[in-house]
Simulated scan of single mutants.
Amino acid sequence: MKIDIHTHIMPEHIPDWFKKFGYGDFIHLEHHKPCCARMIKGDKFFREVEHNCWDPAVRTKEMDMTEVSVQVLSTIPVLFNYWAKPEHGLETSRFFNDHIAQCCAHHPERFVGLGTVPLQDVDLAIKEMERCVKELKMPGLEIGSNINNLNLSEPKFHPFWQAAEELGCCIFVHPWEMMGENDMGRYWLPWLVGMPAETARAIASMIFGGIFEKYPKLRVAFAHGGGSFPFTIGRIEHGFNVRPDLVAIDNNVNPREYLGKFWIDSLVHYPKAMDYIIDVMGENKVCLGSDYPFPLGEHHPGHLIDSMANLSPATKDKLLFQNALDWMGIDKDLKVIASH
């Protein structure tokens, strides 16, 4: 069994909210040729995508080709729309969530859905989270690594974390709006360098902000192998020890104590890096994640794990599916476990 916790999807037809609302970088699609579409951001070209971005039949065929049993579907981060007016962010979130729920309903044995919420307004975000969990039967949400440049540890987000813990709603944190993005556009550096740093920012801010301390039952996973965080934990801990006046101002617990208390995906592209994250994070906290269907993803999900002869069959099972089930709080039949 393979459960891929990091896959993105969008509807085939998205309303032109730029025209409807009269502002912003809302995305819609222009289907200019078969099996292909242009993503239009506001009124400007953003990216070209293929039909595996929206067509469940194509996805399931490609899943079969790569022996992926289940995809965990989440929206594409450019669709978070955190910058929008709250009521418009809610409207777009509900549209994407209903689409993902429909995909899961039509293919209940192949897809599990994560919702998106308008975190620019925490009260609206909590209401939509409740709808995702209670009505749409989703085990969790995907959120960005920052919310309009605010760290996830900001006090205004504490009610969101409390509600997620109480609902048993798992959270997948994905980098977006990378720090320094406007200063390093050449060489694709925002994606190659900015994304790992952005994920580390999210993890470190949640640790230092005391989120895992205040809400210990949260089940949070971070994309892209935890970004640069696992590889800089020594530096992060050293900073905590030598400058507690700057670092330990909201939480005086050593950051190393939180290793093993959250999950990361397996998207590191390198056997030595895989060995390292398993060693640092623990073999119970790494989940298969491919970033399907995008170029930076693992094109044959789980191939790196399968290829590593030093990993036992039991460890591979944990990485390929068991840890994903634990993080989402679901069983092998993809049903939410009652205790969650």
Rank of each mutant, 00 (worst) to 15 (best):
N251C: 10
S228T: 12
P15M: 09
N254V: 07
Y23Q: 08
P108I: 00
Y292P: 04
N252V: 05
I233R: 02
I40T: 01
I126D: 02
A324H: 07
H158V: 02
N310T: 13
W188M: 15
V268A: 04
L304P: 13
H31Q: 11
P216V: 03
H299P: 03
L218I: 00
H31S: 08
D16E: 04
G239R: 05
Y276N: 09
E87D: 10
A57V: 08
L325H: 01
G302N: 01
Y276F: 10
Q102T: 13
E87M: 04
P86A: 01
S307H: 08
I249L: 12
F208K: 00
H31A: 08
W191M: 14
L325I: 01
T92V: 13
F96C: 12
Y258Q: 10
I126K: 03
E177P: 05
A338Q: 15
A338P: 05
G42Q: 10
V220K: 03
P271A: 07
A248P: 14
E166T: 11
H238T: 13
A223C: 09
H269Q: 03
I203W: 01
P15Q: 01
L218S: 11
C132E: 03
W54D: 05
E48F: 11
M178K: 13
E91T: 08
G239H: 00
F46H: 15
L119A: 10
T116S: 15
L189H: 14
H300D: 07
R110M: 08
T66S: 01
R38E: 04
V78K: 07
L119H: 12
D123M: 13
G226K: 05
H158C: 14
V193W: 03
M206I: 06
F321G: 12
G180K: 14
F111K: 05
I27T: 12
S153R: 04
H107W: 06
R186S: 08
N323F: 05
H99T: 06
N151L: 10
E166A: 15
C132N: 12
F80R: 14
M178R: 14
F21K: 12
D123K: 15
C53V: 07
G329S: 06
T199V: 05
M129D: 06
M179N: 11
V336F: 05
T66H: 04
D121L: 02
S74D: 11
F26C: 01
P77N: 11
F262Q: 09
M10D: 04
N310P: 08
T66E: 06
A273I: 06
M195S: 14
G168N: 15
S205Q: 06
L320G: 02
N241C: 13
R59M: 05
